[in-house]
Design a protein around this nucleic acid. Structure first.
Length: 599
RNA sequence: GGGGCCGUGGUGCAGCCCGGUUAGCACGUCGGCCUGUCAAGCCGGAGGUCGCGGGUUCAAAUCCCGUCGGCCCCGCCA
């Protein structure tokens, strides 16, 4: 139908007759000359219908065109008259002199403007097919395609096979709440949609596939957030006969390749690395944003004996006094500071001490309790100079760090330190393998129950079984086992995580014992995997990357719905189709389901 | 499960605090004029149960209660 794309026309096409297809984006009818901006996937080009240069009926047809009419326009590419070029358009030096116009379809007036970005999201989602017509959304769709394409190209070159795994899967307790699918052929029984292809990809390793990947859809029936959806996509990878170094190397090269080939962004490799405990100590989070400094410092030793009772008391019971230098924030208003205090309190801190450093004086409600020597030592440790604002939280170590971590992010956002175009990847390693679950009264896996411990920590798993210390105690061997697991973090967002898996029965049994999962029950839940592991399972490990989140970061949006073609609202509703909906009585009967709705 | 913010013609907003004209503005839309615009311009018109229900009041977009929907956060997300 067409000879060219609208957006590709340049001065080099001048003189050519072209036939274009697209939508009428913007119409400027001067009574005489009519301009119609014709838009297709590639961009926009101005078409002109001049009554002195085209047939009368062509001009009449053009005058009847409405917004978003679907058009076929034929004409000659000409240079725009001097002074009328539009530098805002890539095609702005030329225009198409319309000689023929055909209305392929009409359009009703639109429910929201396609030319601005601030329409109500609900309306956009209801008419997503219109929303996706907008150039910004098309760029995102294109970016997402190019990114996954690059990943496929790269993984192919590395010898990986993309293998599809079942969507109808088996219910396995632990982990996220699952979506269930009733079985018509097995009355009263259900499939579930996979939270991730985790177990499948491990079975593929037992199967000798060695190098697997998949752009995999995953489903979790948890409350969505700005950066979460009920269904999302992960780049799922698993390899045999490797150590975590191999995974790091592969993923670093893969991301560098995809960033460069999809978006032209050069990414520095190798990525930074940081232990979990380091991340918590220095940044107060397991997903530090390394685009800016402002590290958290420990000043417990400086103020342990100070006359400020809150500090000395916390120190004497094993707590920590942590501080952060909000560089250049001395001028924060009372309101700003009270906002900071609220954030700290939300994290569980009892309060926030601040010291505002001036040229010759300091402003602080705690300074009078601190000696000059103590103040000097604090300034020195935080490299504080005039104009800075020091924030101090005294509490249990991890709580003080977490509170300051939140403040660090808040202040950086306020000071505009989270700059777009800065790509700071970091591997966070050596997570604890287990965490104590107060409610359930047992240890639970931080990652998942097939994550191996660091080789040097395996003995702690055995020791743990015989320890005299109460479970949950921070010094209990089981609290101290580090996992051979890793997260990858980009600009403060966790974009993926993985581990080297357990592949030996003995270690797996020790792990189940540590989390108080009887072998019998383990077999009920994961029997197929445990059995598979008895037939020569190779050492293996892998990672899963959150594709939606990565695309969102590149597209510079906090909202993951922006990078999903047909997303759902934060209650899991789809305004376009109206789903979820009730189903017919017949379908319920077929699938042996009786509803018991309250009220 | 809990908390915060929001809901006013098709779209984006104002009005709400301190109740009282015909609910205002911009965009879009419709009609007219207009031969170089690109946020085209000028003139005119249509379009609103102020999310819904209840209450207070002589009187409610405005105050109160409830409810529905949206967004964000905590819990949750191995």
């Amino acid at each position: 139908m067409r000879t060219h794309w609208c957006g590709e026309l340049r001065p080099q096409h001048i003189g050519q007759k072209v036939r274009l297809c697209g939508w009428a984006s913007k119409i400027r009818d001067h009574g005489g000359v009519i301009f119609i901006d014709l838009r297709d996937r590639s961009g926009i080009v101005q078409t002109v219908f001049d009554p002195s240069a085209c047939l009368r009926e062509v001009h009449k047809l053009a005058s009847e065109v409405g917004s978003e009419y679907v058009l076929l326009v034929e004409g000659e590419v000409v240079r725009r008259p001097p002074g009328t070029e539009n530098p805002k358009l890539p095609t702005g030096e030329i225009e198409v002199r319309g000689e023929r116009i055909e209305v392929l379809n009409e359009s009703k007036p639109l429910p929201f403007p396609l030319t601005s970005d601030d329409a109500d999201e609900m309306v956009r989602l209801k008419h997503r097919y219109l929303d996706l017509r907008r150039q910004r959304m098309q760029r995102i769709l294109e970016l997402r395609y190019k990114f996954t394409k690059a990943i496929r190209d790269f993984m192919d070159a590395e010898g990986f096979w993309e293998i599809e795994t079942p969507i109808l899967w088996k219910h396995t307790p632990e982990g996220a709440r699952e979506f269930i699918v009733p079985s018509r052929l097995h009355p009263g029984k259900f499939y579930v949609l996979p939270q991730s292809p985790q177990l499948c990809k491990q079975l593929l390793m037992v199967a000798g596939v060695e190098r697997y990947f998949q752009i995999a859809r995953c489903f979790r029936d948890e409350d969505p957030r700005a950066d979460r959806q009920l269904e999302f996509t992960q780049v799922d990878i698993e390899m045999s006969f490797i150590t975590r170094e191999d995974i790091f190397d592969l993923v670093e090269r893969m991301l560098a390749y995809a960033f460069e080939h999809a978006v032209g962004i050069k990414v520095e490799t190798p990525f930074a690395r940081m232990s979990y405990s380091d991340a918590m100590e220095r940044y107060g989070t397991d997903k530090p944003d390394l685009r800016f400094g402002m590290e958290i410092a420990d000043i417990t030793d400086i103020v342990a004996n100070s006359s400020f009772q809150i500090f000395s008391q916390v120190a004497s019971v094993g707590g920590k006094v942590k501080a952060l230098n909000a560089v250049g924030c001395a001028s924060f208003s009372r309101k700003d500071v009270s906002e900071l205090t609220d954030i700290a309190k939300r994290a569980g801190a009892k309060g926030l001490a601040t010291i505002s450093v001036g040229e010759s004086e300091i402003h602080s409600h705690v300074a009078k309790f601190l000696s000059d020597g103590e103040l000097e030592a604090i300034f020195e440790r935080l490299k504080a100079t005039a104009g800075d604002l020091i924030l101090i939280v005294a509490d249990k170590g991890w709580l003080a760090c977490t509170a300051l971590g939140l403040l660090r992010n808040h202040i950086a956002a306020k000071l505009n330190l989270k700059r777009y175009g800065d790509w700071k990847f970091v591997w966070v390693v050596d997570f604890p393998l287990l965490q104590w679950d107060e409610e359930e009264g047992r240890y639970t896996p931080v990652h998942h129950p097939f994550t191996s411990p660091l080789p040097e920590d395996e003995c702690l798993l055995i020791e743990g079984a015989n320890s005299a210390l109460p479970k949950g105690h921070p010094e209990h061997p089981l609290s101290k086992v580090r996992a051979n697991a890793y997260d990858i973090v980009l600009n403060g967002y966790e974009i993926g995580g993985g581990s080297i898996r357990i592949h030996k029965r003995q270690l797996q049994e020790a792990l189940f014992k540590a989390i108080d999962l009887p072998m019998e029950e383990a077999h009920q839940k994961f029997g197929f995997l445990l059995e598979a592991f008895e037939y020569g399972a190779p050492p293996h490990g892998g990672i899963a990357l959150g594709l939606d989140r990565i695309i969102a970061i590149i597209a510079d949006t906090e909202n993951i719905r922006e990078v999903i073609a047909f997303p759902k609202t934060s209650t899991g509703y789809d305004p376009m189709t109206g789903s979820p909906t009730p189903v017919s009585e017949q379908l319920l009967r077929d699938t042996h389901i009786r509803l018991s709705l309250e009220d």
